[in-house]
């Protein structure tokens, strides 16, 4: 019932893996997603204080000669734009395009939002140390023989499976 209309994982995995290889073939680097959020966050901070972004050792390199919009002239940010359009088109074709909240039937929406929000904070912070997320570090790394990709993925699985029990209630 839940899965009706979705593609199989083998064909989906084959297509994602092939897309990943095309990225390496064309760009010489894999896809990613978390970097776009980092750039967008830096851009928003720069709207308030460009001098802070220029003085911060992590973000200073993103400021180019064209001012703060240069922060968003970033490969991963462009990939995120692509993911957004692709996700939109697929949802449109599949008839899944609607405002909704993913949660269990009896779960309070505020509880689900709180977990999504704080999980987002943890994930964003974690991706900076791991130099990427499940896409940019996990799949792209392991898909190019990198040991770091596998190391990261199994750390993620350890974190997920050892704590999933605590957050199970939101899906009931």
């Amino acid at each position: 019932m839940q899965q009706r209309g979705y593609w199989g994982t083998l064909i989906g995995g084959f297509l994602v893996g092939t897309t990943l290889f095309i990225f390496y073939y064309v760009s010489g680097a894999g896809f990613g997603a978390s970097g776009g959020f980092s750039q967008l966050s830096a851009f928003i901070i720069a709207l308030f204080s460009k001098s802070y972004i220029a003085s911060n050792a992590y973000t200073a390199k993103d400021l180019g000669e064209h001012g703060i919009t240069h922060i968003l002239y970033n490969r991963i940010f462009f990939i995120d734009i692509g993911i957004f359009i692709g996700g939109f088109v697929s949802a449109l074709i599949g008839g899944r395009l609607r405002f909704s909240v993913d949660k269990g039937q009896t779960t309070p929406t505020s509880y689900r939002y709180a977990l999504a929000f704080f999980g987002g904070i943890l994930i964003a912070y974690a991706t900076r140390y791991a130099r990427g997320c499940t896409s940019g570090q996990g799949l792209a790394g392991a898909g190019a023989y990198s040991i770091g990709g596998w190391l990261f993925l199994f750390c993620v699985f350890a974190g997920v499976y050892l704590t999933a029990r605590l957050f199970r209630r939101q899906w009931l």
Partner: peptide, 9 residues
């Protein structure tokens, strides 16, 4: 840390 965040969110 990413894993914990993913289990949460």
């Amino acid at each position: 840390l990413f894993g914990v965040g993913m289990a949460m969110s």
